[in-house]
Design a binder for these strands. Sequence first.
RNA 1: GGUCUCAUCGUCUAAUGGUUAGGACACCAGGUUUUCAUCCUGGCAAUCCGGGUUCAAUUCCCGGUGAGAUCACCA
Length: 484
Amino acid sequence: MNKTQLPIRTRFAPSPTGVMHVGGVRTALFSWLIAQKNNGIFILRIEDTDKVREVEGSIEQIEKSLKWLGINWQEGIGIGGPNAPYLQSKRLDIYKKWANQLVENGRAYTDPYSKEELEEFRNQAKADKIPFLYRNHRRESVNTWAESKPLRFKSDPKPYRWNDAVMGELSTGPEVIDDFILIKSDGYPTYNFCHVIDDMMMGITHVLRSQEFISSTPKFLNLYEALNIQRPILATLPYVMSIDGQKKLGKRDGAKDILQYAKEGYLPEAMINFLATLGWNDGTEQEIFSVDELIQKFSLDRIQKSPARFDEKRLLWLNGQWIRRLSLDELYRRVHDFWPESAKQASEKYKMQILGLVQDRLKTMADLPILTSYFFDEPKPNWDMVEKDKYLSKLNIGEIMGLLKSAQIALSSSNNDAKSIQQNLNTLLETTGQKPAVLFSIIRLVISWAPFSPALNETLSILGPEKVNSRLKLAIDIATQISR
RNA sequence: GGUCUCAUCGUCUAAUGGUUAGGACACCAGGUUUUCAUCCUGGCAAUCCGGGUUCAAUUCCCGGUGAGAUCACCA
């Protein structure tokens, strides 16, 4: 078989039952990477056959999430394609046709039992301590399909041994094969049935899905045989687990909406990098991967077999790395919604200068206000910060006032560039005979009243002499009052 | 309970039938004129247990143990 001739087609097929969280996103990402790497097609299909669990607005959320990450699809919801429609609820005729074929071939039959009767069978099996198998209760049935009743697959129990692109060779015995429902009594197909039909019709070559499907795979294999269709390459992805618990990360375990990370100031580059390296690596010591590098280097056979925990601290670190990697222009575009309210009136040039100063200090873009608000607003003095300071607490109020006054004089004669300000500060160190720890601390505090700030000379330079002078003056006034 | 899967520092992982078991995050300590961050240096820390095969096992085999999944008219 010549693999270069096979067009790779992968899909992401979520059900619209809520927001997207990290596990689902990673499945989408890996499927997308495989397609991109091989110049293939990535399809977005929506599996909305459970009308009870469906949540309105989910499809939009899914699309928005994928778009935020830059995971684009070439066929599917929103854009159509040769295999439209891509919404399963619009494909009921197709499933019905294939179901009828199975009925005709004697591989599907009407389930005659009520839910109560089935429940009875299950309880009995439990009491007898034997596994429940529906096929033990098959009746000799006619090959007709009463559409108000569920349609079941007539399975052909046998052992299976198959290859999984991630897990390697897997095997099961015949006892896991049972007669499952193909079409529910409400007329909608089950996932077990319709995903097989759709994957076949859409020419899917690689099916990536998470670990919980591993035990139902034999059922699918049995169905592939009954339909006489070739199965795609199967790849099972290990779970993403919550950091503390041992549980698969799901909605109930506090898994966040992926878009929440966007709101919290994370970059899609960081999220992609993080998710890709959660359970995959290229065998080198590289930690930072761009999307292009991932497309180039990604491969199924290097995916980990065991589940990985979602470590948000690592994500945070990666986000900082990616923030630093962006050009200032690009970062400026990204932080658009994160400036403090008071920055609204400020000029682009001013904000750009400030951004350049704090770029190395941002872990997320949401850190922007706390790092920059005193550039836009007059900060509220809090003399407590002076009194509690490691160095300043040793000085009396007179000494502090003296330092502030000397600073006021020295800085008023500066040119306003960072370099000459630094020279003046250096001179001031000599004339006052103070250590930088003391002198710079007091100036920094009364200028910013912030717990931390960028290099002093640059901060002063960007603020400009007027603001510097007025804030020093205000501090001197406060000190004067205290000393009385 | 039946069936299936997995198992290297706290976390993400690399490697190999022979290595001082490597890297990264986190944490701790030190350095870069104040703070915070970056950056640099150093430190802490792992092959689940028991057998077998072998000159040699973390690696191969078997058995435990632990963890997870699944056994729906959910996907």
